[in-house]
Lab assay of single mutants.
Amino acid sequence: QLNLPENTDDWTKEDVNQWLESHKIDQKHREILTEQDVNGAVLKWLKKEHLVDMGITHGPAIQIEELFKELRK
């Protein structure tokens, strides 16, 4: 059970990391997002292209984008 703020805009980069870990996103990809200071407010704007530009491969980038879309519903 994750204990994250209800509003994703309030998520810290550590919260984002924890959420991605719960969805089995590889540590190396989570570390990239942490290094790039991606918090919840930033995550909602990220598209696959942004994630790929940061060095995340296409498969996980699509997965992260789709997971966040599902979360926002």
Rank of each mutant, 00 (worst) to 15 (best):
K69L: 12
N39P: 09
L33G: 02
E35Y: 10
D9N: 11
E6R: 03
Q18M: 05
I62T: 15
E35A: 08
H29A: 14
P60L: 15
L51M: 08
G59E: 15
L43Q: 03
V38F: 01
I32K: 05
K28P: 12
K44A: 13
D15L: 02
R30K: 02
L67D: 14
T34V: 07
D9R: 07
K69C: 12
K28L: 11
D9G: 12
G59Q: 15
L51N: 01
L4W: 01
K24I: 09
R30T: 04
N17E: 09
L20A: 03
E14L: 06
L67I: 03
E31R: 04
K13N: 08
Q1W: 01
W45I: 14
G40H: 07
G40Y: 01
P5C: 03
L46A: 12
A41Y: 14
K13P: 08
V16F: 06
V52Y: 13
A61I: 01
N7I: 03
E35S: 11
P60F: 13
K44V: 07
Q18W: 06
D26I: 13
P5A: 01
N17Y: 13
D10H: 10
E21Y: 11
V16G: 00
W45F: 11
W11Q: 00
K13V: 10
S22Q: 10
Q18T: 09
H29P: 12
L46G: 02
I32W: 04
L46N: 04
L46M: 11
L46D: 03
E21A: 07
H29C: 13
K24T: 09
E70N: 11
E35Q: 06
D53N: 09
T34C: 05
A41I: 10
K13Q: 09
A61K: 03
L51Q: 02
G59D: 14
E6G: 04
S22H: 08
D9S: 10
W19G: 00
L20K: 00
V38Y: 12
N39G: 08
D15N: 09
F68N: 12
Q18K: 12
L51G: 02
N3D: 04
K44S: 13
L43P: 02
L33K: 02
V38H: 03
G40C: 01
L20W: 01
R30A: 04
D37C: 14
L67V: 03
W11G: 00
E35H: 08
L33N: 00
W45Y: 10
D26F: 09
Q27N: 03
L67M: 02
E31N: 05
I32Q: 05
L51Y: 02
T8E: 06
D53T: 10
N39Y: 02
E6I: 05
V42H: 15
L43E: 02
S22D: 03
T34W: 05
N39D: 11
N17G: 06
V42K: 15
L46H: 06
G59F: 14
T8M: 13
Q1K: 12
P60E: 15
I25K: 00
E14W: 09
I32S: 05
D53C: 08
K24E: 13
Q27A: 08
N7C: 08
W19M: 09
K44C: 09
H23M: 12
Q36V: 12
N7A: 11
L2Q: 07
I64T: 03
L46K: 13
M54H: 02
H29T: 14
L4I: 08
E14D: 09
R30Q: 07
T8Y: 11
H23Y: 08
L33D: 00
D53I: 08
L4P: 03
L43M: 09
L20G: 00
L33V: 03
K13L: 08
T57A: 15
F68S: 11
F68D: 07
Q36N: 13
Q27I: 03
N39Q: 10
V16L: 07
T8G: 07
E31L: 06
A41K: 12
D15A: 04
K69G: 13
L4V: 08
E70L: 07
K24Y: 14
M54E: 04
D37L: 15
A61T: 02
T12S: 08
D15T: 10
E70V: 09
D53L: 11
L51K: 01
P5N: 09
V16T: 01
L4E: 01
W19H: 04
E14V: 06
L43V: 13
L20H: 00
